[in-house]
Structure formats: structure tokens, C-alpha cells
Design a protein around this nucleic acid. Structure first.
Lengths: 70, 70
DNA sequence: AAAAAAGTTATCTTTTGTGATAACTGGTAT
DNA sequence: ATACCAGTTATCACAAAAGATAACTTTTTT
């Protein structure tokens, strides 16, 4: 069960991104960070901070609460 | 608008903690961190990571989604 | 009023998330 | 085949979160 929250949140980001038809690269660009870091985030390989999640949610156009609906 | 998310989340933690009649010190102890750090978190003076929020939510007995209902 | 408990703030070290670069894979046009 | 786009992974430097201690204020209890 280790890192399961990170992984779940990453999956939610990915799911929302795909629903909105945005590439990972484009989402990264909207957030002003590198595609590599977005990949890491979606893969649940980073223990994101509130500010990182907020930036991603703004770029996706969703409320942050959406990241935790799983 | 700066740090508003941190502040909102901190307020939610505090509100839930008070509803459950737990002191900040006791909540900190349940989380295995110092009361000073819990104070900082509730005050919105730290940009918490997912794992920190998860620990606090487990100690409070609430789902993490509750922290974002404001 | 004194003592105890609860909470705040500043500051320090250690740990780790972020941001960046580069090398790579897989897929898909050209 | 080869250029191009999308995504992954490893690695690095740097900024900042986590963890801790101590001194302090505020609130509550006795």
C-alpha cells in the first residue's frame, strides 16, 4: 500500500488530462514545467505539494477536490 | 491570494480537529510530529505534501477529500 | 495568583520535492 | 528509413518541506 495516495492522485490527473484531450507535454507547458516532471507526477513517483497540485488543477480547469475522488 | 490554498487546508484541519475535541498537541502526537509543526500546518505556513496530509487525515479519522471541501 | 496545558514563532539541520537536462523507447506520419 | 511527437527514466542542483528544539504568549485549571 506504499505510495498509494500518490499513485491514486497521479492516476486522477492522467484521467482528467485524457478526458480533456491534452497531451502530457501540453499540460506540462501550461503548468510551466517539464514533461519529465509531469510524467513523474502522473506515475505517482513524487510526493507532490499543495502548490504543485494547485498549479496542475488550474491548468486542467478543475477544482483540486477532483484529484481525491477515487 | 497568495498561499490561500495552504491557508484553507490549514483551516479545515483545525476545524475538523476541534470538532473531534482533540488538542493540537495530541493530534501532533498521533501524527508523530511536533506540536510546533502542527501549528505551522494549521496556520497555512507550510506547503504540505500529500504524505503529510495523509498522515493528518488518518489521525483525524477522515478522508483526505474532506480537507478540500471549502 | 500560580501552575499547567495549549498554542505560536523563530531557527536550525536533514531530507526530499521541484525544476531542468539528456538519453531513451514506442508509436506514427512522411 | 527517418523524422517527429509523446511519454519515461535517471540524474543533478537548488529550494523548500519535514522534523526538531527552545523560548515565548495565551488560555485554562486549581
Amino acid at each position: 500500500m506504499k505510495n498509494s495516495l500518490q499513485i491514486e492522485v497521479g492516476k486522477r490527473i492522467q484521467k482528467i488530462r485524457i478526458e480533456k484531450n491534452i497531451s502530457q507535454q501540453d499540460l506540462a507547458a501550461k503548468c510551466n514545467f517539464e514533461k519529465s516532471n509531469m510524467s513523474r507526477l502522473e506515475a505517482g513517483r513524487s510526493n507532490a505539494t499543495l502548490s504543485t497540485l494547485e498549479i496542475v488543477c488550474k491548468a486542467l480547469g478543475v477544482n483540486i477536490v477532483e484529484l481525491f475522488k477515487f
